[in-house]
């Protein structure tokens, strides 16, 4: 097990769902593992795509994730559902790939996307209250597309912290461990990422927009 995945066993919170398949998997049954790959690869690919913008990178991450899972299976006690366990392994694999490509090291400035203030501490151009479309499914899907596009505009490190915390539901400590940074750095980056995302969404959801 490599360093990136060294915490896979200890950090998994769990419920047992898959009794019999697990026995076969732990026994090293190749057919059982192939079934596991076919069943879980689609969801794992979707998770990897969120972190890695290129399809070929996402596929490499899924492949890495299955190799890590295969190595760790003998120690997997089934306390967590396999899906939950594989989800975490996939996130780890995606982060490992981002690290290998040094994409998490590039600190791009977010200053242009942070709120601006006048000298008296009031916000410049505060805008109108936001309007959330609750109408047709198509409009909701359009809104979701705009949010995904805005997320893609965030610098990699901020986007990654936001996905770990707000989308994948890891807590501050888990996120810090996954990224190899301290809790305060996670909190600071998350706050700036949310502020920046809010700025990017304002043209679409701020009062008076047509979103």
């Amino acid at each position: 097990m490599n360093a990136e995945n060294s915490d896979l066993r200890g950090k998994t919170e769990v419920r047992s769902e898959e009794g019999a398949p697990l026995t076969a998997l732990r026994a090293g049954d190749p057919a059982a593992f192939e079934r596991l790959v076919r069943e879980h690869a689609p969801r794992m690919l979707a998770v990897a795509r969120r972190y890695l913008r290129r399809e070929d990178d996402a596929e490499v991450a899924v492949q890495d994730a299955f190799v890590s899972a295969h190595r760790a299976l003998p120690g997997f006690q089934g306390e967590a559902g396999l899906g939950t366990w594989l989800h975490r392994i996939t996130v780890n694999a995606a982060l490992g790939l981002l690290r290998r490509k040094r994409r998490l090291e590039r600190e791009t400035s977010l200053e242009d996307l942070l709120p601006r203030f006048r000298s008296d501490g009031h916000r410049e151009a505060p805008g109108l209250p936001w309007v959330e479309s609750r109408e047709s499914r198509l409009e909701q899907e359009e809104a979701r597309r705009k949010v995904r596009e805005a997320l893609d505009q965030l610098p990699e490190i901020h986007r990654t912290v936001l996905m770990l915390r707000d989308i994948d539901g890891f807590d501050t400590g888990e996120t810090a461990t996954l990224l190899g940074i301290n809790d305060n750095a996670v909190k600071a980056r998350l706050h700036r990422a949310r502020l920046a995302l809010r700025t990017l969404l304002e043209p679409h959801f701020g009062g008076g927009s047509d979103a």
């Binding site: 936001w130 979701r144 949010v147 995904r148 949310r194 502020l195 995302l197 969404l201 959801f205 701020g206």
Partner: peptide, 12 residues
């Protein structure tokens, strides 16, 4: 709007 942003990221 900040809460909306957090929710929208999760929901998207």
């Amino acid at each position: 709007s900040y809460r909306f942003t957090i929710r929208a990221a999760r929901d998207c």
